[in-house]
């Protein structure tokens, strides 16, 4: 019997849709966006019909735009607070707590955390909104306790969206870390314990070095995920009050689709991409530094 080998072009037919997808929905739009960011394109008006090339004008404007500086800062704060600190640390804590524990409890806790993640972001946003808004439940409870309520979404909008994002996103880090921790050799931990290392030292000196790669990869994934978060913030605070929680995706949506300044909105999207690249570069460096 003759052994059949795949034809030389067997790979081509299954890849055609993917190439179309890459061309139409990735490379094409990026090139288009890169060009548009240097024009004065708009959604309507004369600039919509016949956009002009304006060079670095949009980026020059961005540099002096207080709203953009504000949005960059809020995006970094949001990402650091909800992803790097919140999701990452809480996910690790949950994974460590549940490591080699009672199967039933493990299953229950895992289910509770992951359930929050499969729900629409809008549900998280609504729950927090109903709870924290001026005439929301928290204030009603505070009033019955004889305390003065306040509009939490006005006084602490960043805290609200960070909490919301931690609630929704922790599951991913937890699952990733659970998988990584199951690879850590039990004998190593036992040896460390016999040598008198407490739980914290065991985690810091034995577990963490082993799962370091996973931590960095996870950080990169959740960071890229978080800098693009739109729904949660849009529904919860719409970026407000004023611009107090207007992160880059919201600013970009506002400029491009509400004000129709397509070119400037696109320039903002590239700033967003830059922030993501910066975070990634930091993680990549941190990973290399200690090897």
């Amino acid at each position: 019997m003759r052994r059949r080998r795949p034809g030389v072009f067997a790979w081509l037919p299954p890849m055609v849709p993917t190439f179309l997808l890459l061309g139409l929905f990735f490379i094409g739009p990026i090139l288009w966006a890169a060009y548009t960011a240097f024009t004065n394109a708009a959604l309507s008006g004369p600039a919509a019909r016949d956009p002009e090339f304006v060079g670095w004008e949009n980026f020059r404007r961005a540099l002096h735009d207080p709203n953009l500086a504000n949005a960059v800062w809020l995006t970094v704060l949001f990402t650091f607070g909800s992803a790097v600190i919140g999701q990452n640390c809480l996910g690790m804590l949950l994974a460590v707590l549940m490591q080699r524990r009672n199967q039933v409890i493990r299953a229950i806790v895992g289910m509770l955390v992951v359930a929050a993640w499969v729900l629409p972001e809008i549900v998280a946003a609504f729950a927090l909104y109903a709870f924290l808004s001026g005439d929301g439940t928290l204030n009603a409870v505070l009033t019955t306790l004889g305390m003065e309520g306040q509009n939490w979404l006005f006084t602490a909008p960043m805290l609200a969206i960070i909490l919301g994002n931690v609630w929704r996103g922790t599951a991913f880090s937890m699952l990733i870390y659970q998988a990584a921790l199951s690879d850590v050799d039990v004998e190593l931990l036992e040896a460390a314990q016999v040598d008198g290392a407490g739980p914290l030292r065991r985690f810091w000196h034995v577990v963490l070095p082993i799962v370091r790669r996973t931590v960095m990869t996870n950080l990169m994934l959740i960071t890229l995920q978080t800098i693009g978060v739109f729904t949660l913030i849009y529904v919860l605070t719409s970026g407000g009050p004023g611009t107090a929680s207007q992160t880059l995706p919201l600013l970009m949506y506002d400029r491009a689709f509400e004000f129709g300044e397509i070119a400037y909105g696109t320039a903002i999207a590239f700033v967003l991409l830059g922030v993501g690249a910066l975070f990634s570069a930091i993680y990549a460096r941190a990973l290399r530094a200690e090897v």
Binding site: F26, I30, M252, A269
Partner: peptide, 11 residues
């Protein structure tokens, strides 16, 4: 990995 905002306008 690309944030969806980057290609939102052209699309």
């Amino acid at each position: 990995m690309l944030p969806p905002q980057v290609v939102a306008v052209p699309l």
